[in-house]
Nucleic acid binder design. Structure first.
Length: 313
DNA sequence: AATACCCGCAACCGCCACTCG
DNA sequence: GCGAGTGGCGGTTGCGGGTAT
């Protein structure tokens, strides 16, 4: 502690390396090995500090460095390892031959992190955020219904959101072979719901969570059932190539109806832009697949809410 | 054509862990 | 056991090229 930075010593050179410096460093290490990094600059005839030489060698000049774009396999590995290890760049780099920790760190900060954020994934926790956020207007719109507000459902809806934001609630979105795209990863009974269950039908897996609450209507009372469904469609494209596309739907149902028909809301609308649709992401080699959908704005208009409330109640 | 802005990446900085005398 | 020296790691900066206005 308290040592002055080595590059401050003897007016040593800083900044970008010249081809001549690179050549001197490479020649020296190939002939003698790096030995003591601190002693190396003098021996190699460089006006650099040992630390700078080491960095230049390990991050750029080393002969076994793989340069060029990261493959989708490498991207998936980084995402997977980062979800486990966090910002342990050197450990992550040890699993990717030819890649340096600095390169991986840069790639994470400039590409992967932004991509996760765009997709609504918290890059630190690797938990989805966008779908929760997209649920929020819907939940709020429901809460805005006078009847629901009267029965303080907003509180319960916010508890629901909070539940899905808990660490570990949703995992493995990046792994195209694991059908846990948007689903809670444990099947334990959810305390915020009166019922929830998992079912598998063909290539589809779904988790349904239901919640019942009373509604006063024209002097009478009835039960409304609120259901949120997480659906994973597992598509098989070839030998071993599976992709998972997640959906989240929410519906209301009245207990007055004998047939108990669901009043499911319209399908989510993709808002990821034409260049970032799930299908394009998939076709590029099985990259992360996470829904970035939202409910259309008309859902929140008074006329729509009035109409649907009549149908339900 | 000029300027502003954005983005990617190489390099730096400070801290920590390990080694060795 | 202790402290100095060294290597390594992760966060951050700033330059240069590309793009938008």
């Amino acid at each position: 502690m308290g040592r002055s930075p080595c590059c401050d010593e003897n007016n040593l050179k800083k900044g970008p390396w010249t081809p001549e410096e690179d050549q001197k460093l490479t020649d020296h290490i190939q002939k003698h090995g790096h030995g003591s990094w601190r002693a190396l600059p003098k021996l190699a005839g460089l006006r650099r500090c040992g630390k700078s030489c080491r960095l230049r060698w390990t991050n750029y000049l080393r002969p076994d460095i793989k340069r060029g774009k990261f493959s989708s396999e490498e991207e998936n590995s980084i995402l997977h390892l980062h979800s486990i290890l966090g910002n342990k760049w050197s450990t992550i780099a040890s699993h990717l031959p030819g890649r340096t920790d600095n390169e991986i760190k840069n790639y994470w900060n400039t590409h992967l992190k932004k991509r996760l954020i765009q997709m609504g994934i918290d890059p630190m926790t690797h938990q989805p955020k966008t779908d929760l956020i997209s649920c929020l207007p819907q939940l709020i719109s429901l809460a805005n219904l006078k009847e629901l507000l009267q029965h303080t459902q907003l509180t319960q809806n916010l508890q629901l959101l909070n539940l899905f934001q808990q660490p570990g609630a949703i995992t493995n979105y990046y792994n195209p072979k694991l059908a846990t795209n948007l689903m809670p990863n444990n099947q334990e009974q959810n305390p915020y719901f009166s019922s929830n269950y998992l079912q598998e039908v063909g290539d589809q897996e779904r988790v349904e969570m239901s919640n019942f609450f009373p509604v006063e209507n024209n002097g009478g009372s009835q039960q409304l059932q609120q259901q949120i469904t997480f659906i994973n469609n597992v598509k098989t494209n070839g030998d071993d190539d599976q992709q998972v596309v997640g959906q989240c739907q929410m519906g209301l149902m009245s207990d007055k109806s004998e047939s108990a028909t669901w009043n499911h809301l319209p399908s989510l609308v993709d808002n990821s832009g034409s260049n970032h649709t799930n299908s394009q992401e998939n076709s590029s080699g099985g990259g992360p697949v996470v829904s970035s959908n939202y409910w259309p704005e008309f859902l929140f208009e008074d006329s729509f809410l009035d109409e649907n409330l009549k149908e339900i109640c």
